[in-house]
Design a binder for these strands. Structure first.
Lengths: 342, 342
DNA sequence: CTTGCTTGTGTTATCGATAACATATAGGAT
DNA sequence: ATCCTATATGTTATCGATAACACAAGCAAG
């Protein structure tokens, strides 16, 4: 079977099966009135020609592309990958295909990306984060399709929301550390405004410290978000160089927390006896580190699942106008890296 | 600006700008003869209407969809994410969009996925792995577009290849362990045939052991691939329960190696003094673990970069018929987890 | 036996853009 | 002044499928 120049079309299948193209079209859709025998004949003809439906043409004609556009800041991030997995699995039965884009934590890139994605006429858009350029907001509003913002709690939502408060989630960790008796508490994060969720965590954490009457000055930012294990390690060293008596540190993510933990161990500090380390995100690594790292589980997978469920109702009922806000409840996972044993 | 029912079309922009739709079409393509003033007028009209090009229609008409289909086994895998990043960045300048699918290490799912992707009429297909169902091979052959298999070295390539020999890569590790003086060497991997690359590693590793005249019996498979940190930990415990005098273990991936390392440390074993642990894949975690884990860098990012470069030539020259095979050279990263200090 | 509904199939128009061809204008070469 | 070429724009047909409508046949209900 030689590779052909142009793939066979529905008309080719129709001719071979001795029916009209319209019947072929129907034969490929479930729940359309086609005699079982005709359908078999068409299926056989299609298979023998190696026919594959052209969704491009189908989408143009039916005005339903079967695409859901989704943006995430980065591929190399287990949290967003989990969300994506929840989304993918939740949409599997609908036959919708996810059109994915990476913003690299950059609003300008996000705007470019959204425009590129909208060109494909997705039937809905799932967008990570709540900070968008003005033009990006306008593009989304004009697109006339449901929009779901995830992983955040926007002041001014574009449509539906499946998210949580990064500030409150981080405050949970402050509560925990204070409750464990730590008083000289620091924070490690990235050093630009790109990662707004990271900044929200920092803000929420420091605010909670202040509310406890504690100092909020032990903040060390290092590297472009999302910060890596290596950067977490260096940040911890720098933080201890400046404030050697620090008792506990929260890191903006589990990856940087793991780096910080490694740095402690290399310099002979015991965790948590000499210094407590906490992370964020409930990555696998936090669970399997020695000691296991206290972290916040933000329900990354569930965000995807809930967004998918919301999409299913939107697509079924065409009721994109009712903005709904689903709040995910982050939970603290207290582990050895911060627990004081009396 | 209210959300409209149906988005504006090129004809709407044309009317507002006082030109023909064709001119609008040209105004959006670079290197087409349009007066600068006209172009500005059209751009302004488009912006004021919130016009976004419909790639669906464009693709149908021009027979160039701007899609590259790509499949990877899993999202939650830093290696494949790296490959994807290389691919994305390498294709960025071309304006091609990646249409991504996850096979979940399953050939049946792969076939389903490939058919779904081919419906979108991608201009090329990048597919991870070399094992495919018969129908999948036929679909790809019939599609009439360049196909690149990555991350492997197929016996019978579908088209171009950017990969490496998993067996030889694993043999590198056997060489290293033997060279370090270990003799009672084990292997930890997943326990099904789904992950063919993992199996290739196992095969190559055991073969190398035999070639050194060593026993190849210390193999423990545990859990569905890709195996997790937790499974790596349990596998190590099981392996030591059965062969307590094991001196060194290679794990099919760095994640399971990290789990194994943690398991050792929990049970008071010193690494590498009591037992050496090695991984595969050069994940971040291997570098930052304590001790750092010896691993194999397979050049995941480079696989993506090279595949992108190949695609660029294919798309420019329309020379998909010349199958090229690019071999990536895996390298051993010798680290503390296996190094004997005399 | 007629009416009305369901099932199965065909016909025509259309989705939104672009390729291919056609035309007009401006400037340069001869 | 004439021809030629490059630039700038318009016209027509078409990409491959599906929506909407039309129609035939079969069967049930009245």
């Amino acid at each position: 079977m030689p590779a052909r120049r142009t793939p066979p079309t529905m008309a080719d299948v129709a001719e071979l099966a001795g029916v009209s193209p319209m019947t072929v079209s129907r034969a490929f859709k479930p729940n359309s009135p086609v005699k079982e025998e005709t359908r078999r004949k068409i299926r056989a003809a299609a298979e023998s020609l190696g026919y594959v439906l052209d969704s491009t043409a189908a989408g143009l004609s039916s005005r339903r592309t079967g695409f859901i556009a989704a943006t995430i800041p980065s591929i190399n991030n287990a949290n967003f990958a989990d969300t994506l997995r929840g989304l993918t699995e939740g949409l599997a039965e609908t036959g919708m295909q996810i059109l994915l884009g990476y913003t690299d934590y950059d609003l300008v890139e996000e705007e470019r990306l959204i425009e590129q994605l909208l060109r494909r006429r997705p039937e809905a858009v799932v967008i990570t984060g709540s900070a968008h350029s003005e033009r990006c907001r306008r593009l989304l509003a004009n697109a006339g399709v449901p929009v779901i913002e995830i992983w955040d709690q926007p002041q001014d939502p574009l449509g539906a929301v499946v998210g949580f408060s990064n500030a409150r989630a981080a405050a949970l960790m402050a509560d925990h550390l204070v409750e464990q008796g730590y008083r000289k508490i620091g924070f490690i994060g990235g050093d630009s405004s790109r990662d707004t969720r990271g900044l929200d965590r920092q803000r929420g954490f420091l605010k909670a410290l202040r509310d406890f009457g504690l100092s909020d000055e032990r903040v060390l930012t290092y590297g472009l978000p999302p910060i890596t294990m290596a950067q977490g390690a260096r940040a911890l060293e720098a933080l201890l160089a400046r404030w050697p008596d620090t008792e506990a540190v929260m890191c903006v993510s589990d990856l940087s927390a793991f780096g910080a933990l490694s740095a402690c161990q290399r310099s002979g500090l015991r965790v948590p006896e000499d210094i407590a380390i906490a992370g964020f995100g409930a990555y696998d690594i936090a669970e399997h580190a020695n000691p296991a790292i206290t972290t916040i589980d933000v329900g990354a997978r569930e965000i995807g699942t809930q967004a998918a469920a919301l999409l299913v109702t939107f697509l079924e009922e065409r009721e994109s106008d009712v903005p709904s806000v689903i709040e995910i409840e982050p939970t603290l996972l207290a582990r050895a890296s911060t627990l004081r044993r009396p």
